[in-house]
Write a protein that binds this DNA or RNA. Structure first.
Lengths: 347, 347
DNA sequence: CCAATATACTGAAACGTTACAGATTGCCAA
DNA sequence: TTGGCAATCTGTAACGTTTCAGTATATTGG
């Protein structure tokens, strides 16, 4: 079925959405001229240009996305690629808001492209690139050697990663300084007299696992504390697993007197595990945790927290992709955000 | 700049993305025939159809979205409209996952359309409808008399609402039975001997505020308990506000001995407020709260919880919009999800 | 005064798709 | 044999946009 309403010629009826043809008819110009006038092309007379733009504004002209996309290949779409199992709740919501904040006054739309446990993380990226569904892509859960980043570089698709890579390839990224976080956390615990520390790590394959572990290790030797290995869990594990294994850990004789946790959700489980073992937070053990919203101090006042701003990450990532699309140097679109101080509860 | 690579005729080179023309060339058929063969049109011979579909699969043909959209007006896009200030974190992430789960094996993409405090909630919807940016829309924070729903009905745009309306107009929705939730909560508190109850309500203008309040009120008189008014906050308020006002409330002589909270985040603040007032959860007061993930029992074992599944809501809403787009009766696309029992902590 | 050139504009084609209105073929009834 | 008809297939136009290759007019230089 043909969905047209107007019969043949120009629709001047007024109810249909205006197109370049409408504008051409109203101004008495050709569609080419109108098109160029709207994008401030130099070969259009100054008055004509103003006239066209005025009329366009008046009747609320908006370029048809499909027309532009078909002709130019430009989609005006940014895709955020998310793992539907392992992303943190707060991460998803904050990063989306951060991105939308930045693209709000651009023609860009944000599409969310999910992938699940069973899938190769490269799948959604391949799909996006093959179908040309986006002008730019944002990925998270970045790995040191990340096939997705490599793939997009090879195919010339602008993207930004949440987290760095380590492939000798340059691309935009935003990252939180987890090396500094772990270091600060260790020092804060040491300052409280804690010297047998355990770490609840990020997911093992990801880049920020390394930074966190290195920051932890370096600071340990700096302050002369020792590590109590706790490799059986990461923040990707379920609440129940973390809780159970923390309880096991805390019942051992060589239990830690300080724990550092890389995510707030894991921290809830860690504390539950500590209490399952009959120990008391702040007395038997201190815990430093990252969080992305102010929940942990409501949970237990004894917790020490460091804040990570995911909304900022979203904004920075969006800015980075847009910058790359606009032709800026990928190398100039990298940012690292410093952790806040380690914060105790403040009444 | 013309982005073409092939010069003039058919590109059989193999590197460019295949189009109908490519398929037509390879099969020796016309593009029209190929187009129809791919969508199982009846006037195409059975063998031809199979042949075309085989070749299409082989070379990985995927229809160009811009072409389809330009020609037919079909965008293959569902838009999720979100408030960037007041949506719950867990809501955003779960509902997105629920939606993507359903549209995963359809040609649909999900775009997130945000709006902020300052904006008229109708703005983003108007934008979507005017620009024809989506085939279907999902909105949340539904009001009894919702201008957005009315607007989309008037403009013939398929949509689904999270929460019901009350305008005498029929449209798809998914809702959680908050009337039942509040009732169950009251009964659970009554069973614990609590009979002076306060309610931390949903945001005042929204439909589920009414259901919650009515369920609360009806159950109160059913069990013969009384209400301690607590109208100064809703779950839209900040953690700090809720905490402060809860503390104020709990320091009064006529303080409640039971509190019902409509959201987990608010509950954290409520409990903090209770403890600020020097009272003890489970002894001086019991709290029943909704939650959408298993956090509250890690927080305080004394809490009573009711689970609301936002991922389910996302799936149901997506199914509803798709159903409407596919021509089903809007009235047949409504669902209400019953609350779980009121659950105490289980070891 | 003529040619060269700059300025301001324009039609046609193309992107990939689908709908419409045929075209071609084979088969059967008259 | 011919007309009619069903079964298959096809070319063209159109969706709205941008780019290419112009055209028309005024302006300048010699």
């Amino acid at each position: 079925m043909d969905r047209r309403v107007t019969k043949k010629g120009d629709d001047t009826s007024g109810k249909e959405r205006p197109t370049l043809k409408t504008l051409a008819f109203m101004t008495g110009l050709g569609v080419t001229t109108v098109s160029r006038a709207l994008k401030d092309a130099p070969e259009i007379g100054a008055e004509t240009r103003r006239r066209v733009q005025l009329v366009a504004k008046q009747i609320g002209y908006r370029p048809n996305r499909a027309g532009v996309r078909l002709r130019t290949g430009k989609t005006n779409v940014i895709s955020l690629v998310l793992n539907t199992e392992h992303e943190l709740m707060s991460f998803v919501s904050d990063i989306i808001y951060g991105v939308t904040e930045v693209i709000a006054d651009t023609p860009y739309h944000l599409i969310v492209t999910p992938y699940s446990r069973s899938q190769d993380p490269l799948d959604p990226v391949r799909y996006l690139v093959e179908t040309g569904s986006a002008d730019g892509v944002i990925i998270s859960r970045t790995q040191p050697n990340d096939p997705r980043a490599r793939y997009m570089l090879e195919h010339g698709v602008p993207f930004a990663t949440h987290g760095r890579t380590d492939m000798g390839l340059v691309h935009p990224y935003h990252d939180f300084d987890n090396y500094a976080f772990a270091g600060e956390a260790v020092r804060a615990l040491a300052a409280k007299g804690r010297n047998r520390l355990a770490l609840v790590t990020p997911p093992v394959g990801l880049t920020y696992f390394r930074y966190t572990v290195n920051g932890f290790a370096d600071a340990l030797s700096e302050v002369g504390a020792s590590e109590v290995p706790f490799n059986t869990v990461s923040i990707d594990h379920t609440i129940e697993q973390i809780r159970m294994r923390t309880a096991q850990l805390m019942r051992r004789d060589d239990r830690p007197d300080g724990i550092i946790s890389s995510a707030a959700a894991a921290t809830l489980a860690v504390v539950a595990g500590i209490e399952d073992a009959g120990l008391k937070l702040g007395r038997d053990v201190d815990v430093v945790s990252k969080q992305s919203s102010e929940v942990l101090h409501l949970f237990r006042r004894e917790l020490l927290v460091v804040n990570e701003d995911f909304r900022l990450a979203g904004s920075e990532l969006a800015r980075a992709v847009l910058g790359w699309i606009a032709g800026k140097e990928p190398g100039s679109l990298q940012s690292l955000s410093k952790p806040s101080e380690v914060l105790p509860y403040r009444g």
